[in-house]
């Protein structure tokens, strides 16, 4: 027989967890359920929580109300560009810091360190003026180029490169392989876990970006989902379930990414906390 005290403890534990889980999941669940309500149900009082049928009319309506397809396309394009750019540029710098002997390495590394202390918000006014003077307002360059380099990415990858066995480097050297070949054919393929972590992390961050696209996009053709979805909120004559249907559409890619890449994402996030 189980000890009754243990049983009681476990019941209390699961009850507490269930309560917390409901609190966390409620806003997301509410969004999805409201998105599936018919217009009649959503205007009822007391409010209906659970749809009695699966109704996709709201989703269709959202696509006709705002060019959400364009917004998703833009966000996807921007997040992918930033992701690929950061992975390439950061892995090159990390490679140089780990494998290449050049004078001033320590100085440059410290300089990279200091960039992590400059919050993006502090540089936003001059960056806005720079981008404006280059006529990059409302352009993909303006939305991506300022984010292509990241010191965080360099640190994450450097940490991983340092753990790769050094013998591989020596063996490649004896085989006559230069740095470029070693970087492309040995270091990068072996670092797939770290590259995946960085990719998932950067993609999600870029997908969720708010302040910068708000400042530098004016036309519907260049808006990202995050700005587009908040516009929906302030449209006249748009009912809640349409707004929430839009939110659900925007959330879908991030939730999918979370399901598929949670392990990579966790590694990416916690890399920042690793000392050294």
């Amino acid at each position: 027989m189980r000890n009754p005290v243990v049983l009681l403890q476990r019941t209390a534990l699961y009850a507490a967890l269930a309560l917390l889980a409901v609190a966390v999941i409620f806003p997301i669940l509410y969004t999805v359920l409201q998105a599936l309500l018919t217009p009649e149900q959503s205007s009822q009082y007391p409010p209906v929580l659970w749809p009695d049928q699966v109704y996709f009319g709201n989703l269709e309506k959202v696509f006709s109300l705002i060019p959400i397809g364009t917004f998703i396309g833009n966000s996807f394009m921007i997040a992918t560009t930033i992701m690929i750019g950061q992975v390439c540029i950061a892995s090159m710098a990390a490679y140089a810091f780990v494998y290449v002997a050049f004078p001033g390495k320590k100085f440059w590394f410290t300089l990279f360190l200091t960039t992590m202390m400059i919050p993006w918000e502090v540089t936003i006014i001059p960056n806005y003026l720079t981008v404006k003077s280059w006529d990059w307002i409302d352009s993909y360059q303006g939305l991506t180029v300022p984010f292509l380099a990241s010191a965080f990415g360099v640190f994450l990858l450097r940490q991983f490169f340092l753990q790769l066995p050094r013998e591989l480097f020596e063996a490649a050297k004896i085989d006559g392989a230069g740095h470029v070949r070693h970087y492309l054919t040995i270091v990068l393929p072996l670092s797939r876990p770290a590259l995946a972590s960085l990719s998932v992390y950067v993609f999600l961050q870029s997908w969720n970006m708010y302040l910068w696209p708000l400042l530098i996009t004016n036309s519907d053709g260049m808006r990202t989902v995050q700005i587009g979805i908040s516009m929906l909120q302030f449209e006249e004559m748009v009912s809640w379930n349409n707004v929430l249907a839009g939110v659900a559409v925007v959330l879908l890619p991030s939730l999918l990414l979370l399901v598929l890449g949670l392990k990579q994402l966790v590694r990416g996030i916690t890399a920042g906390a690793v000392k050294g």
């Binding site: 140089a96 290449v100 004078p103 960039t115 936003i124 001059p126 300022p146 292509l148 380099a149 740095h179």
Partner: peptide, 26 residues
Amino acid sequence: EVSLGYLFLAPSLVLFAVFLFYPLVK
């Protein structure tokens, strides 16, 4: 070797200079 090291750092350095250090001074 030295020039390769700087070549690999160059993209990061240029971007930091333009979008981080210059804005700070500005």
